[in-house]
Design a protein around this nucleic acid. Structure first.
Length: 506
RNA sequence: GGUGGGUUGGCCGAGAGGCGAGGCAACGGACUGCAAAUCCGUGUACACGGGUUCAAAUCCCGUACCCACCUCCA
């Protein structure tokens, strides 16, 4: 069964047929680094991370590009408000974003190009568009360059809109435009209000790139003028992706074969935004649940489904995830059995410029992503059907239940087999709890603490065991209560009592 | 005005003509000294009104409500 995915452009689920057999080129719009990332932002990253992992598992050699927009109006405005250079703000927010990705085990892309590093490529593309009669320098001397929407009859094809049906933009400064829908490819430097550091030389005078042109230029640089999948959040369909496609095709590039868009996470029925406060920023959410639990919450819903975020739902889902983890532990914490194939090593090595990905988690990525692992058929079918993660998760729970049943029946070998299936499924979803890519919380300090608690609890458990042997259940229960009051749960197993930190308090 | 998406049991969330995805919660049972954990069982859900069909949550028509995008938001 081949991989099928929903293509937003054609509005149907289609077989994935890559341009080049065995290879897949992906471009996903990353973030504008102007503020701290919230849950909504990372959903996109997690969704496409799952896509990347699944394609790799299926044996594709994946080139995955996720850009960073590090110059734009909002960055300039905010930096000015905060009284610091725009590049200082952009870099700080980029680091916050990286932390959030790491906390959610979002594997690094092949390249993560930044807009400011690709000005020449953009200038070149704009020049080509002018030469072909699809773009023009504004007649008002502003130094702006606009895409001429009327010159491109297919404009609107991605989102099926007609130019004349579109509401004209309430453009603050429409003077230089031939049509109100024309969009900026290049924005002339405004001496009075913008720092000189935010202006680059160009044939049209100093200025900076428009948003859309960045992605067109960077996608073709790293993936070629034709590539397989372009992704992003639904809100980017228009204008961003429509404009990207118009520019690139007007410049003679075939551009993306498939368009994928992830749906929103809302809170209280509203799109997440900073106006709702900072409670949904990643560091805040991670005070409540672990990164792996937040990732599971995001993976358990289909990427095209709208998710109404709530902490209650997040807590419930986390409880469900702990059941999976506890089965793995009960079954003996299996390791993934597999060999890293040379082919896979190739899949993550650089394909351009001879420069490797600069991330240190490179090796863990190669360990994670392996097509040799055997997965249950139901899981594979679910994933092949437009990344049907909810159905895939259901398959995982079936295995967990069956495995627990086997444990109850004393079939430890059978349970272990199922546990390794579960682990393999988790791994493909980026949810393997043993994955070294998960940030460790406390290091050696943490370990020492655990040892200390273990000794103390062991002493109490011994007293409890003695009381139970003497049928002094009141005393035994009192000890259990005492331990529980400290936030530690006791579980009596056939091999003796075990303790663990109370769920939800970690 | 245009374009796209949605409304599923107490809650979360799949499915897209015919055997009740899955999770959380609840209740009953097994196990346990009692618990916990685990397993087994328990639901006649698909916004509303029509229609098509042997069969509709799923297709068609209509209605209501919600959401997103319409020029620099994942």
């Amino acid at each position: 069964m081949t991989f099928r995915l929903y293509d937003t452009a054609t509005r149907e689920v289609r077989d994935f047929v890559p341009l080049e057999e065995g290879k897949a080129g992906l471009y996903v719009c990353g973030l504008t680094v102007q503020s701290e990332p919230h849950v909504g932002h990372v959903r996109s990253a997690v969704n496409f991370d799952v896509l990347q992992r699944w394609l790799r598992h299926a044996g594709y050699e994946v080139t995955f590009i996720r850009n960073v927009t590090d110059i734009d109006d909002k960055i300039l405005v905010k930096a000015a408000e905060q009284g610091r250079p725009w590049y200082n703000l952009a870099y700080a927010m980029k680091r916050e974003l990286d932390k959030a990705y790491a906390a959610l085990n979002v594997a690094p892309p092949t390249y993560e190009p930044a807009a400011t590093g690709h000005i020449p490529e953009m200038v070149e593309l704009i020049t080509e568009l002018i030469a072909r009669g699809h773009a023009y320098a504004a007649e008002d001397g502003s130094g702006d360059v606009y895409f001429d929407v009327r010159s491109w009859p297919q404009y609107g094809e991605l989102t099926r809109q007609k130019i004349d049906d579109m509401e004209a933009a309430e453009d603050a400064d429409p003077r230089g435009k031939r049509d109100p829908r024309d969009f900026a490819l290049w924005k002339g430097w405004k001496k009075e209000s913008e720092p000189e550091t935010a202006a680059w030389p160009s044939p049209w005078g100093p200025g900076r790139p428009g948003w859309h042109i960045e992605c067109s230029a960077m996608a073709s640089k790293y993936l070629g003028t034709a590539f397989d999948i372009h992704g992003g959040g639904v809100d980017l369909r228009f204008p961003h992706h429509e404009n990207e496609q118009a520019q690139s095709r007007a410049a003679g590039h075939p551009f993306a074969s498939y368009w994928m868009h992830n749906a929103w996470i809302t809170t209280a029925g509203e799109k997440m935004s900073k106006s709702l406060g900072n409670s949904l920023l990643i560091p805040e959410v991670l005070k409540r649940v672990r990164g792996i639990e937040l990732r599971y919450y995001l993976v358990a819903a289909h990427y095209r489904s709208h998710v109404e975020f709530s902490f209650e739902a997040l807590d419930e889902v986390a409880v469900g995830f702990r059941r999976i983890e506890s089965f793995l532990e009960r079954a003996g914490s299996p390791q993934l059995e597999r060999a890293v194939s040379p082919q896979l090593e190739g899949a993550i090595s650089p394909q351009l410029n001879g420069k490797g990905p600069d991330s240190a988690s490179d090796t863990s990525l190669s360990q994670q992503l392996n097509e040799n692992v055997q997965l249950p058929q139901g899981f594979v079918e679910a994933m092949n059907d437009d990344l049907g993660t909810p159905a895939a998760v259901a398959v995982m729970y079936d295995a967990v239940r069956e495995g627990n049943r086997m444990l109850g029946a004393g079939d430890t070998d059978g349970a272990r087999r199922l546990a390794s299936d579960v682990l393999a499924m988790l791994d493909v979803l980026g949810l393997n709890p043993h994955d070294p890519a998960w940030p460790t919380t406390g290091g050696s300090n943490d370990h020492q603490l655990t040892q200390a608690v273990d000794v103390l609890v062991a002493g109490l458990l011994e007293q409890r065991a003695r009381a139970r042997a003497n049928k002094d259940f009141a005393a035994a229960d009192a000890i259990r209560e005492q331990i529980l009051a400290a936030g530690i749960e006791i579980e009596d197993t056939p091999t003796g009592p075990k303790w663990s930190l109370e769920a939800g308090t970690t």
